[in-house]
């Protein structure tokens, strides 16, 4: 159970940012994760009244407010049509529909959980995050950074890639043991591995868009995996090439379908 003295419905981003500079404050987004953390804080800062829940389609990109829910994203017709239906497929195993109606895309990306399906898919898609003070940062860079006190306001996903995702779980709706997101674009095939169990990262880029089993095996051999309660390092390394193969085949097929 969290414990807060004050609960502030922020009226502006500037107010939220200023309050968040104190260590005794915490940002509340979907509250799905935060609820479990048992934090004791002076001030909880609520972002729900800032109009950050919109999904906007621009000519060259989608701009998603950080408070859009995972459910908003997975059911958005424009997003799914543009990226090979990857969001519906990638988010479906995350707990349940009510949960995903609460969990936000911004809370997910700020947290950069190692087990995140969300980070893996977004990394496959040239995503940029928009931070209130720092401005736009490529997600590939943000993924490597420590948590800070800036506010993630939007997620920008440029058009131009088609993606697919595969994951393995011990049981349905549990967090994944391994996630692979693949995407194809003008520069070829990109592969992302997440839940290694460390944070998701790009493991290959600019590959020929082919189902090259030997190449995927080689990538698994040189990628860093670890062991935790759910699976061993060896298990993850064995499973990775299979997930890469499936995700690659699916996104290549989806890309061809989109062009047809």
């Amino acid at each position: 159970m969290a414990s807060y003295r004050n609960y502030v419905m922020a009226q502006t981003l500037e107010e939220a940012y200023a309050l968040n500079q104190k260590k005794s404050s915490v940002i509340v987004a979907g509250n799905m994760w935060l609820r479990m953390c048992g934090l004791k804080k002076q001030t909880a800062i609520d972002l729900s009244r800032l109009g950050l829940d919109k999904i906007e389609e621009r000519e060259d990109a989608f701009v998603i407010g950080s408070m859009a829910s995972l459910r908003d994203v997975e059911t958005h017709a424009g997003l799914n049509a543009c990226f090979g239906g990857v969001f519906a497929r990638a988010f479906a195993p995350i707990v349940g529909t009510q949960f995903r109606r609460g969990a936000t895309i911004g809370g997910s990306e700020y947290s950069r959980f190692g087990f995140s399906d969300v980070s893996a898919v977004l990394l496959a898609l040239d995503t940029r995050v928009v931070l209130y003070k720092r401005g736009e940062v490529p997600l590939s860079q943000y993924q490597t950074e420590a948590w800070d006190r800036d506010i993630l306001t939007h997620i920008v996903i440029p058009k131009g890639r088609t993606a697919a995702v595969e994951s393995v779980r011990l049981s349905a709706t549990d967090i994944p043991i391994l996630v692979c997101a693949a995407s194809v674009g003008a520069d070829g095939l990109r592969l992302v591995l997440g839940a290694r169990p460390a944070r998701a990262m790009i493991v290959a880029e600019g590959m020929k868009p082919e189902a090259d089993a030997a190449a995927f095996e080689e990538i698994a051999q040189r990628t860093a995996f670890g062991s935790n309660l759910r699976a061993s390092e060896e298990y993850r390394r064995k499973v990775a090439p299979v997930l890469m193969l499936r995700a690659a085949m699916n996104c290549i097929a989806a890309g061809e379908e989109e062009r047809a």
Binding site: Y7, M9, V28, G30, N31, M32, W33, R35, M36, A44, D46, S48, V95, G96, T97, Q98, F99, R101, G102, T173
Partner: peptide, 27 residues
């Protein structure tokens, strides 16, 4: 549950099913 994943606390908020255990009351 204490982990936001059992669904037992489900209510409708503005017509949509949500987990009441995780909705901050002031919201």
């Amino acid at each position: 549950c204490e982990t936001t994943n059992c669904g037992l606390c489900t209510v409708h908020m503005d017509g949509q099913a949500v987990l009441s255990c995780s909705i901050p009351a002031p919201r």
